[in-house]
Design a protein around this nucleic acid. Sequence first.
DNA 1: TCCATATTTCCATTTTACTTGAAATATTAG
DNA 2: CTAATATTTCAAGTAAAATGGAAATATGGA
Lengths: 107, 107
Amino acid sequence: MENKAAVTVLAALAQETRLAIFRLLVPLGAQGMTVGRIGETLSLAPATLSFHLKELTHANLIVARQEGRYIHYSANYATMSELLGFMTENCCQMAGDAPPSPPACCG
Amino acid sequence: MENKAAVTVLAALAQETRLAIFRLLVPLGAQGMTVGRIGETLSLAPATLSFHLKELTHANLIVARQEGRYIHYSANYATMSELLGFMTENCCQMAGDAPPSPPACCG
DNA sequence: TCCATATTTCCATTTTACTTGAAATATTAG
DNA sequence: CTAATATTTCAAGTAAAATGGAAATATGGA
């Protein structure tokens, strides 16, 4: 993952409503949840919800799947994993330099 | 780390200039870098840089240390580590439910 | 003290993000 | 086809973030 892509993913998660949506979807696996039910659960106006779903989709953090007349959104674990990889990489690359002590995130 | 704190940290990193500042500081360990040199390195106007340093400081991602008439900023590994913990926790808590397959970020 | 330099604050401007009602689109059921 | 429901798009308003010039503050050196 590059810098720009990381900013996109971070920006998508850096918003209370979107983080709530993502966290709601994560435990549900590939089945996900319909737009309507997400809106009910989090008390969001349809247009507001649709806006945030588009943001998360654009960041590739969630994925849409049509089923009947409903659309299910589910978390995309791969992107989350890539972001974690990017951040860990940045956090730990300094170990090669001359740091006073290795950062905690490097285990 | 709670949801709200996570949003603050994510928002601090979800901006190209701030992510660049943070990534610049990470390999330097506790010594960090002066404001002036950060500004030179990234070609930032003093007011712009100061604004972003404040944002990163508020998120507790960087720390200031005065040395002579210079101020050195350095990365705060602890916050980075907490954020990674928060995200991993969220990413992997679903393993207890009924997911089709464990997400990649859970190893 | 007085000067020079480093950094921040203030302020105004511009840009970008968020919200929501209403209209449009899409899909299924009858 | 028509009606009903799910979701998105449009448009317009409000709020928040980002930028940078100029002034203010702080620190060390002469």
